[in-house]
Simulated assay, not measured.
Amino acid sequence: MRRFLSLFATLVIAGTAQAADLAVGDPAPVFALPDQDGETRRLEDYRGQWLVLYFYPKDDTPGCTTEACSFRDNINRLIAQDAAVLGVSMDSVASHADFAREYELPFPLLADPDGEVVERYGALSDFMVVKFAKRQTFIIDPEGNIATIYRKVDPDEHVKDVLDDLKALRGN
Results as ranks from 00 to 15, higher is better:
Phe4Ile: 14
Phe4Cys: 06
Ser6Tyr: 05
Ser6Val: 09
Phe8Asp: 05
Ala9Val: 11
Ala9Gln: 12
Thr10Glu: 13
Leu11Phe: 13
Val12Gly: 02
Ile13Pro: 01
Ala17Gln: 11
Ala17Asn: 10
Gln18Asn: 08
Gln18Arg: 07
Ala19Gly: 10
Asp21Ala: 12
Asp21Pro: 02
Leu22Ile: 10
Gly25Asp: 09
Asp26Gly: 04
Ala28Thr: 02
Ala28Gln: 05
Val30Ile: 09
Ala32Glu: 14
Pro34Phe: 03
Asp35Tyr: 03
Asp35Pro: 05
Gly38Ser: 07
Glu39Gly: 01
Thr40Val: 15
Arg41Gly: 09
Arg42Asn: 14
Arg42Ala: 12
Leu43Val: 10
Gln49Ile: 00
Gln49Glu: 15
Gln49Gly: 12
Trp50Ser: 01
Leu51Trp: 00
Phe55Asp: 09
Phe55Trp: 06
Pro57Val: 06
Pro57Thr: 02
Pro57Ile: 06
Asp59Phe: 00
Asp59Pro: 00
Asp59Cys: 00
Asp59Lys: 00
Asp59Ser: 01
Thr61Asp: 10
Pro62Thr: 05
Thr65Arg: 00
Thr65Gln: 01
Glu67Cys: 03
Ser70Ile: 02
Ser70Met: 07
Ser70Arg: 05
Arg72Tyr: 09
Asp73Trp: 06
Asn74His: 15
Ile75Ser: 10
Ala80Leu: 03
Ala80Gln: 12
Ala80Ser: 15
Gln81Cys: 06
Asp82Ser: 12
Asp82Asn: 15
Ala83Cys: 06
Ala83Pro: 09
Ala84Asn: 08
Val85Ile: 10
Leu86Phe: 03
Leu86Cys: 07
Leu86Val: 11
Met90Phe: 04
Asp91Gln: 00
Ala94Met: 12
Ala94Glu: 15
Ser95Leu: 06
His96Ala: 08
His96Arg: 06
Phe99Arg: 04
Arg101Phe: 00
Arg101Glu: 12
Glu102Pro: 04
Glu102Met: 10
Tyr103Thr: 04
Tyr103Met: 03
Phe107Met: 14
Leu109Asp: 04
Ala111Asp: 04
Pro113Thr: 12
Asp114Gly: 14
Gly115Lys: 02
Val117Arg: 01
Tyr121Phe: 15
Leu124Phe: 03
Lys134Met: 12
Thr137Asn: 09
Phe138Gln: 07
Ile139Tyr: 13
Ile139Leu: 15
Ile140Pro: 02
Ile140Ser: 08
Ile140Asn: 12
Ile140Tyr: 04
Asp141Ser: 15
Pro142Lys: 04
Glu143Ala: 15
Gly144Ala: 10
Asn145Tyr: 09
Asn145Trp: 03
Ile146Thr: 05
Ala147Pro: 02
Ala147Tyr: 11
Ala147Lys: 07
Ala147Ile: 09
Ile149Glu: 04
Ile149Asn: 08
Val153Ser: 11
Asp154Gln: 02
Asp154Trp: 05
Asp154Pro: 03
Asp156Pro: 06
Asp156Phe: 08
Lys160Phe: 06
Lys160Asn: 13
Lys160Trp: 00
Lys160Leu: 07
Asp161Thr: 11
Asp161Glu: 14
Leu163Gln: 13
Leu163Thr: 13
Asp164Thr: 14
Asp165Phe: 04
Lys167Asn: 13
Lys167Pro: 02
Arg170Phe: 01
Arg170His: 08
Gly171Tyr: 13
Gly171Trp: 15
Asn172Ile: 15
